[in-house]
Every structure is written in C-alpha cells, then in structure tokens.
C-alpha cells in the first residue's frame, strides 16, 4: 500500500500554513481556492485539515466513477487526472465527499508532490503525516465535515 496523507485533527492548530505552502508550491502564488487541501477553523474547539485520501476511506472511487470521459484513474493506489482528457465538466468536484477536487481550466487535485508532500514539511505540529493510510483518521475528518 503506498503512503498517503493522514490528517490528525486533534493536532491541528488552524494556522493554515499547509494551505498557503501547498498553493505556493504548486502555483507559485497563493490562493486557497487552488490549495489541494483545506484547513477548517470552525470554532474554539475545532480546527482540522482536509486532505485527499485518494479514495482510501470509502473505496468507492467516487471521482473515478463520476468522470464521463475516464480522465481520472487509479495508478498504484494513487488517483490521478489526465488533464488532456479532462473536459472540465465538474462531475468529480460535485461528488468528492471531502471537497478537495478543484477546478480551474481542468480538474486538479493533490498529487502528493511526487512523494515529498509540501504540507507535511510545513506543518510544525504533525497534524498531517505521510504514512500508511489510516481509515480511522479519515473517518474522524468525515464526521467533522458532516457536522458542518
């Protein structure tokens, strides 16, 4: 099983350093609308990072199934987008339960920075780790999102 981003909401301080670093690394500029992960800062008790789970959490491959042109594939356990095939229809964005499938000219999403994730490097608290997938942690985030 390839390593994945694993969120630890209880360690997240809500500083959003990861979000800014993600955007800066991928786009050379900062905009939370293009960050591949999000930090929710809901109330005094609750801050949490929302990362792409590469569909580990439910195994449903929602975005893969939703894509009408088969531009989204799972390769070695990692969900990737073929930008040449993508028609920017938005179906994948609509179905992603975490809201981390993004859209500009084409769909785009977390690519784990080629195996050295920027968000992990920039999080000082270990609230996002790059390790064996951990369904329990993904479920925690899903529960937090559902309560929103």
């Amino acid at each position: 099983m390839p390593k994945m981003l694993v969120p630890y909401p209880e360690k997240c301080t809500g500083c959003r350093f990861c979000e800014m670093a993600c955007s800066l690394y991928h786009e050379g500029k900062i905009n939370h609308t293009n960050a591949r992960l999000q930090v929710h800062k809901r109330d005094v008790r609750t801050d949490f990072p929302v990362v792409c789970t590469h569909c580990i959490v439910c195994g449903e491959d929602c975005c893969v199934q939703a894509c009408p042109v088969e531009a989204i594939k799972v390769e070695d356990g990692i969900v990737t987008i073929d930008e040449d095939e993508c028609t920017a229809c938005g179906s994948c964005v609509d179905v992603c339960p975490f809201g981390v499938m993004r859209m500009e000219d084409t769909a785009f999403k977390c690519d784990l920075c080629g195996g050295d994730p920027t968000c992990v490097k920039f999080c000082p608290m270990g609230a996002i780790k790059y390790e064996e997938p951990n369904t329990e942690q993904y479920e925690k985030v899903r529960t937090l999102l559902e309560a929103e």
């Binding site: 301080t13 809500g14 350093f17 800014m20 608290m125």
Partner: peptide, 8 residues
Amino acid sequence: NKACFACT
C-alpha cells in the same frame, strides 16, 4: 493547541 493565522 491553537494558533493565530500563519503561526507555526
């Protein structure tokens, strides 16, 4: 732990 925006 809690942090201000952009504080590590």
